Simulated scan of single mutants.
Amino acid sequence: MASTEVRIAIDAMGGDHAPGEIVAGALRAREELGVKILLVGDPQQIEAAMPPKTNLADVEIVPADEAIAMDDEPLNAVRRKPKASINVAMDLVKKQQADAVFSAGHSGAAMASALLRLGRLKGIDRPAIGTVFPTILASKPVLILDVGANVDCRPKFLEQFAVMGSVYSQYVLGTPEPKVGLLNIGEEESKGNEVALRAYQLLQKNHQINFIGNAEGRDVLSGNFDVIVCDGFVGNVLLKFAESLGSVILQILREELPQGLHGQIGTAILKPNLKRIKQRMDHAEHGGALLLGVAGICFIGHGSSQAPSIFSAIRMAKEAVDNHVLQRLNSQYPILQNESS
């Protein structure tokens, strides 16, 4: 990198609240994190979304003539619209004009664009989307992958996810020796389908990771595991369930708190605690999911992402760049090139 300033290319046209919330989160990141922001999309819409006194010297607007809609077929749209904002943002990373890319738009299109423009890391058969879940231990999140990129997985894909997840957990999430688990229907080695049984053997033999065995559904938020691997079908169901869990718990708390004067006093006393609960369970605090396995730092946000989520995703992207995640993943090449199936 020619400069110490981390450069983040942002698909300003992707997401339900684009470009307004995207721009707001990006400007906050510029101010608080000191990153260079490259907003990719329609210049007129981007400028209109900026506050009146915004210093345009703080950001760079990169024009893009098209955008990919949420109902577009991802691969066809990426190929048919070379000047779409997500493609232009990926090209900035490919040309080393940006260090990372973020999009809250069509996740399938973001993945297709990353694969076509950045390519896969050596030794990686399938990239995986990894996202961070809170656990019952306040300072110990768990990384789950894959949460949607690969509906079906071969055992060696799960092994590769485990290696990539361990690197990310160690160098970005700050876990010294990440404990890896395989999501399964039982903790015994003999449990699961043929894919799970074979994956267990591969993970057990892989000395590059700290594999501690199967993780059942009840273990996901226990804090006993730092990285849990699964196929994208199961992972995506788990992700959507977890996203709803926080709002359900907060709603129950609101309904069960006493009403009237006593309730108002009790709520006032508990307000700091409730705020911390919300922060721990709110997916906006984690911002986005990292697409691990492509030759670039790529974060994918939820379509409904608003400014706080955008800010958090940019912060995570900066941390991934600062901690040289790509270089560290490339250093695992001899392990990732496992020919086992």
Score class of each variant (00 low, 15 high):
80 R>P: 00
280 R>I: 09
22 I>P: 00
145 L>M: 12
261 L>M: 13
56 L>I: 12
87 N>M: 09
295 A>V: 08
320 A>K: 07
33 L>E: 11
89 A>Q: 08
336 L>R: 01
218 R>W: 11
226 D>Y: 03
166 S>N: 15
143 L>K: 04
196 A>W: 13
80 R>S: 13
278 K>Q: 14
110 A>I: 08
333 Y>S: 12
323 N>V: 03
317 A>V: 10
168 Y>C: 06
141 P>L: 05
123 G>M: 00
280 R>H: 15
280 R>E: 14
180 V>S: 07
296 G>N: 07
132 V>W: 07
44 Q>P: 04
238 L>A: 14
46 I>C: 13
15 G>P: 01
137 L>A: 09
177 E>G: 04
229 V>R: 00
175 T>F: 07
9 A>M: 10
239 L>Q: 03
21 E>T: 03
156 K>P: 10
126 R>C: 02
244 S>V: 01
41 G>S: 06
29 A>M: 10
109 A>L: 02
314 I>Y: 01
232 G>R: 04
72 D>L: 02
148 G>R: 01
210 N>W: 06
251 Q>T: 11
116 L>P: 04
321 V>R: 07
334 P>E: 10
28 R>G: 07
239 L>I: 10
27 L>D: 01
90 M>N: 07
195 V>D: 05
329 L>V: 13
68 I>A: 00
181 G>S: 08
8 I>W: 06
219 D>K: 14
328 R>N: 07
161 F>R: 03
262 H>I: 01
223 G>I: 00
145 L>A: 03
315 R>P: 01
247 S>M: 08
146 D>A: 14
228 I>S: 07
248 V>F: 15
130 G>Y: 01
16 D>M: 13
115 L>Q: 10
55 N>I: 00
28 R>E: 14
201 Q>A: 15
286 H>I: 11
49 A>Q: 02
91 D>K: 13
194 E>T: 02
280 R>N: 15
320 A>N: 06
16 D>V: 11
312 S>N: 15
273 N>H: 10
213 G>P: 00
25 G>S: 05
100 A>T: 09
204 Q>V: 12
171 Y>N: 07
19 P>M: 01
182 L>A: 10
164 M>V: 13
231 D>H: 11
261 L>A: 08
330 N>L: 11
59 V>R: 11
127 P>H: 02
154 R>M: 15
206 N>C: 08
236 N>Q: 10
331 S>C: 06
45 Q>K: 15
271 K>W: 10
289 A>K: 07
76 N>A: 12
240 K>G: 09
304 S>L: 00
210 N>V: 06
73 E>I: 05
300 I>F: 04
160 Q>K: 14
325 V>W: 02
203 L>C: 10
326 L>K: 00
250 L>D: 03
309 S>Y: 04
152 D>K: 12
41 G>K: 02
209 I>V: 14
255 E>R: 15
67 A>W: 05
34 G>S: 04
55 N>K: 14
201 Q>D: 15
13 M>H: 05
283 H>W: 14
307 A>P: 03
195 V>L: 11
42 D>N: 15
324 H>Q: 13
280 R>C: 11
226 D>R: 08
79 R>P: 02
308 P>S: 12
251 Q>F: 13
53 K>S: 09
315 R>L: 04
56 L>E: 13
203 L>R: 05
55 N>M: 07
170 Q>R: 15
220 V>E: 03
93 V>P: 08
105 G>M: 09
27 L>G: 07
113 S>K: 02
321 V>T: 08
65 D>N: 11
133 F>G: 05
184 N>F: 06
